[in-house]
Amino acid sequence: MDLHLDSIRHAYGSVAVLEDISLTIPSGRIVCVIGPSGCGKSTLLRLIGGLERPASGAILQGGDPPAGCLNPLTFIFQDFALLPWRSVAGNVSLALEDHGLPNAETERIIGDVLARTKLSDFRDALPKQLSGGMKQRVAIARALAVNPAVLLMDEPLSALDSQTRALLMEDLVGLWTRRPFTAVYVTHNLQEAVLLGHEIVVLSRRPGRVREIVKLETPLQDRRVGDPDLEREQQRLWSLMREEAQAADQELIDV
């Protein structure tokens, strides 16, 4: 299932946040979205996921979600959004309970996704007993449980320390290479963008417009930190971003 954004425009009151965004999110690929702070990345993701309505423009699904998909557009949030009163398994099962699956099937899915995110030993732990990295893995497990057609991730790793982040990046790449999924990945971190993105969408400062779309052809599993090609790409993205970020800062000072 792919997604098409057709000249999306959005404003909060009189503040225009997004202007004329047209994008295609191709099936089976990861699209990273970067842009200066406040340019509307999170807003764009909420629009794509149907949590908010765009002021104008349309978001279209191309094709049907694959069979067995319980929740086509599934979020992974920056702040994990786990229910603190439910155990790890309970948090995963929350996403399944409304679908009327037989108990055995629910159990099988929970066991499967917890194994895939290496959480089997923590089934019955409460969120307060988990580290930040583990909490985000629970959120990833919960998202995988509904077999999403498109994963919408809003800075999923930015609340974590750099070591945990590197490990979870490897997990994400591993999950994708084993079974490719479609994803929109919003991030501040240019390194994450070049390691994970098949396409990188650079947004301008607010109101966000598509400034450039960079396509990276290197297969995900061959991308390494320190690879000269990727470094060069990252450097170029940074110079694009820098102008925007500086201009955005300047605007704030002028206000």
Binding site: G49, N71, F75, F77, A81, L83, L94, D98
Partner: peptide, 12 residues
Amino acid sequence: SLIRMGQSFNLS
């Protein structure tokens, strides 16, 4: 944000 999460999973 927890309610948003619930909506994002299409809970009734």
